[in-house]
Amino acid sequence: MKKITGWSLIRLYTIFVYVFMFAPIVAVILLSFNPEQFGSFPMKGFSFKWYIKLAQNHDILMAFKNSLILGSLTAVVVTVIGILAAIAFIRYEFPGKNALNTLLLAPIMIPEVILGVALLLFIRWLQQPKSFLLLLIGHVVITLPFVLLVVQARLVGIKREYEEAALSLGASPIQTFKEITLPLLTPAILAGMLFAFTISFDDVTATLFWSTASMQTVPVKIFGMLRNSVSPEINALGTVMLVLTISTPLLAGYLVRKFSRET
């Protein structure tokens, strides 16, 4: 009897932690549909008013465009770099391997404020203005360790034997890469790209250092809007971002599964 009580307490506690983690997010979604001027409880009906207002806000649409371009470019660049590095770490033995791996993963432990200051200072010393390129290279540095971790983990699971079999059956190294390695790597490539996109799309702190008034991303825009207070419009914008950043990986996961079943 005593055992059951202890276990149910653990279950109850876990439910409490879930509520703690998700209740505020549910509140954001709910309040985004509240037609009241001051987005607070109680709900006074249900409307898409704030979403319509959002869609007419030119600044926010521009920020969305910036975020999407920045996130996509970051994803492509960092995934190419990350996959090459991951292949080196998983497929080859060389001196200093562990130290180099730690060096490449180190940015995870460095506060973003310091990454922000350091890169900005460097650009200033080079007498270059803040630009889109600064944001892009900055986001590449921030996302690289995460992409490397994800791709390495996937790559460990791909057996070397497949490639060796293709080579021994007479395929050229390029054919082997194209026909064997690349298809097997596709889930890792997609996972890395998605991860990089999401991190880039969400980043605030370092981006605040690097962005300019004309080159703002959505989170930086939200940060600026928060100066006043939380309005229903921010809740609506938050909900849009939430749907976007959650549905993309789910959709991609579904497509990968469907794709791999068909071939």
């Binding site: 997010i25 954001v28 969400d202 605030v204 989170p219 939380v230």
Partner: peptide, 12 residues
């Protein structure tokens, strides 16, 4: 889920 959204959600 965006860090800034999660943070500001507590204001609600």
């Amino acid at each position: 889920i965006s860090f800034i959204i999660r943070t500001m959600s507590w204001v609600n």
